[in-house]
Amino acid sequence: MPYQRFPRVEILSIQPQEIKFILSESDTSVANTLRRIMIAEVPTLAIDLVEFHENSTVLNDEYIAHRMGLIPVRYQPAESLKGSDCSDAFLPHRECVCYEHCMRCSVEFELDITYKVTGEEDVLAPLTVTSKDLVSNNELVQPAHFLSQDEQDEAQDEGVAIVKLGPGQRLKLKAIARMGISKEHAKWCPVAVATYRFWPEIHINDEQMATLTLEQKQELVDTCPDRILELDEVTGDIRAVDNAWDICTYTEDLKFAQAAMKKRPEDDDFVTVTQSKDRFIFNVETTGAMDADEILLSAIRVLRNRLNYLAQELENLKDM
């Protein structure tokens, strides 16, 4: 293992629905692999088959089946409070030995809602069928109705809206959720956002800076639309603001402004802002199917398993 790196991770914040962290001492290939795996290869549960018994709603069967697929489904182990990695608890349905589906490879949801009319109502408002109306046959697996308490407080409905019923209409169905990855269909994607940004390296050239007057320095500070620079009132020096890494968007305004300020065009820049090649700011938001920290851990395990598999296949190749 002569060319191995030892990446470092700093957590900025962890919430059930969002995680922010810094990955450093690694490179873009690792950051990008992590991002791509979180988006497309972390296994989750999603409704994949829907059996309609009765549907007198305004939406057709396929339309409702599609909407059901997009409801985030959450696996929460008995002793845990988190939406967790479901890959140890379920078998991929293609590997299961059962005929169609069973408890090992799927979860069944039942839904039966009728808009009953007694004749005594003054107003007949539509009735919304939501994810709350789905009855699971596995208590560890439930639809994720809301991302957070805040979202729930603001919502009009009890859960994720599926269809609205008019008086006398009925929707009765059985839905089967299976484990999958979002390479197959985006409904299995556990993340709403998975991005990384490059850490900005802000270098201030003190020698060049000494040739500027206080007014010119202030002009330079005001040029940057992100306001990543500030003027020290005591010493009159320019420095980067503390949260420059968070607000920097690499605009070119600073570059152009200082080109005009320089005495000679070949002089060094006063301030240079470059993208770090080995430090990344990650931001991951979930759909509700899994907790954000679990997605990150799961993604790393997926990568580890893939590398093991490739190493094994390569060994087999040598033997041939």
Partner: peptide, 8 residues
Amino acid sequence: GSETDHLL
């Protein structure tokens, strides 16, 4: 592989 182990 060892980098991934370290990362985890």
